[in-house]
C-alpha cells in the first residue's frame, strides 16, 4: 500500500485539529484538537520513517508522546482552575489581558 495515503490522512487530521483550535471555544475541545494535531504529526513522522528506512521518525514520535502527556497534565490543570474561578470552560472568557 502506498505510504503517501498515510501522509494525506495525517494532513487531514492536522487540518481538522488546527481548524478546531481556531474556531472552537470550549477549552476541552480546543485541547483535544491540539492532541489531534500532535498525533497527526506523529503519524507523519512514522510514515516518513518508514519511507526513508531509518528509525529517527519513530523516535521523535515517542518524544512527542512524552511531551503530549506532560502537556495534558499542565493543560488539564489550567482548564480545571479556569473553570473553578470563572465558572466557564470557554477560552473567550479568559481575556483578562485585554484592554
Amino acid at each position: 500500500m502506498n505510504p503517501v495515503y498515510y501522509l494525506y490522512l495525517a494532513a487531514l487530521l492536522f487540518t481538522i485539529g488546527a481548524t478546531g483550535v481556531l474556531i472552537r471555544r470550549n477549552a476541552i475541545v480546543v485541547f483535544m484538537c491540539i492532541e489531534l494535531m500532535l498525533n497527526a504529526c506523529n503519524l507523519a513522522f512514522v510514515v516518513f520513517s518508514r519511507m526513508h528506512g531509518n528509525l529517527d521518525g519513530q523516535i521523535i514520535a515517542f518524544f512527542t508522546m512524552v511531551v503530549a502527556a506532560a502537556e495534558v497534565v499542565v493543560g488539564l490543570a489550567i482548564i480545571v482552575s479556569l473553570f473553578r474561578t470563572r465558572h466557564s470552560a470557554s477560552v473567550d472568557d479568559a481575556s483578562l489581558m485585554k484592554l
Binding site: L22, I23, V91, D92, S95, M97, K98
Partner: peptide, 17 residues
C-alpha cells in the same frame, strides 16, 4: 495595532498559525 491584542486566545492562535 493595539486592536490586535484583543485578549482572545483564538485570535492569537490565528496569528501564530
Amino acid at each position: 495595532l493595539r486592536k490586535l491584542q484583543n485578549g482572545y486566545a483564538r485570535s492569537y492562535a490565528v496569528s501564530m498559525f
